[in-house]
Design a protein around this nucleic acid. Sequence first.
DNA 1: AATTTAATTAGAATAATTCTTGATCTCAAT
DNA 2: ATTGAGATCAAGAATTATTCTAATTAAATT
Lengths: 153, 153
Amino acid sequence: MVTSTDSESAPPADAAEAPKLELLGDLRMTKQRQVVFDVLMEQRDHPTASEVFMRVKDRMPTISLATVYNCLETLSQCGVVKTVNVERGSARYCPNQKDHAHFFCVECGAITDVDLGDGQTPTSGWQMPDGVQVDQFEVAFRGTCPSCAKKNI
Amino acid sequence: MVTSTDSESAPPADAAEAPKLELLGDLRMTKQRQVVFDVLMEQRDHPTASEVFMRVKDRMPTISLATVYNCLETLSQCGVVKTVNVERGSARYCPNQKDHAHFFCVECGAITDVDLGDGQTPTSGWQMPDGVQVDQFEVAFRGTCPSCAKKNI
DNA sequence: AATTTAATTAGAATAATTCTTGATCTCAAT
DNA sequence: ATTGAGATCAAGAATTATTCTAATTAAATT
């Protein structure tokens, strides 16, 4: 990881540019994995596993929560989904394949994708110890979003 | 938050420069809070709440795990302790009051503090949406540390 | 079609954290 | 010193997210 990609900037909340699902090794593209991924792409609001479960159930009523967890784990390991930890409690999931960070509004709970600046990498600005190999990163900002800031005046 | 501080760079594993404990509002500096903080300062290996509990128990056998959680929460809210989430599972705690990130070695589990570069802020390099107010951040890098990388040759 | 391996399901189990309640402590004002 | 109010603590119960287990089903391969 830790490579800048190009293309679309923070998608307008909902959008479906369907990145190709490339799984690794012996992993199979199953109906369940596809539906879990589709659901993430269609409503990009960083749902929890339970929220994904509820959405997936509508079109695949027999799926189990454990499977949703398994699918999210698999997709995450394949780099096609990102796990987001902005709060203690439930992890959230995001199909944005670019290197990006998250901003969490402590007032309304909204999560926004934050893009890297041009020519920046996730380790830019940090004094990484010599010789470490960085494979993944997670950057979370917490604070107040513009619309909540207004309400607080 | 999101202000660069100066002084000491990544402390040599263990060190005790005793930052002053300033609590907010009606909060009181109790024996329990002080001991929890002392323990974090004396062995700076990013312990979990349970590990802190075990260490604190040695010098205050009557303390309860719930109190350790409460103390860590309080110290964290006062900005004197940082909560570190590098893995799912237990949160870890760190008394480094500077703005800093963490590097987690997936091989050996070691956690290293990573300093900001000179003149950098936590949001440097990121295209923060206009008007957001950032109060906190958490940056975690995952990968392989130099000594584990050697073993893998 | 048979075989092999991976994936799914349902529910049980685990583990971290939070909550609840009553007792205790601190501080400040009487 | 006494009292009252609010903060904190302790112990254990409760909650909740996630992982594990074992049996079944599905997918790919021969």
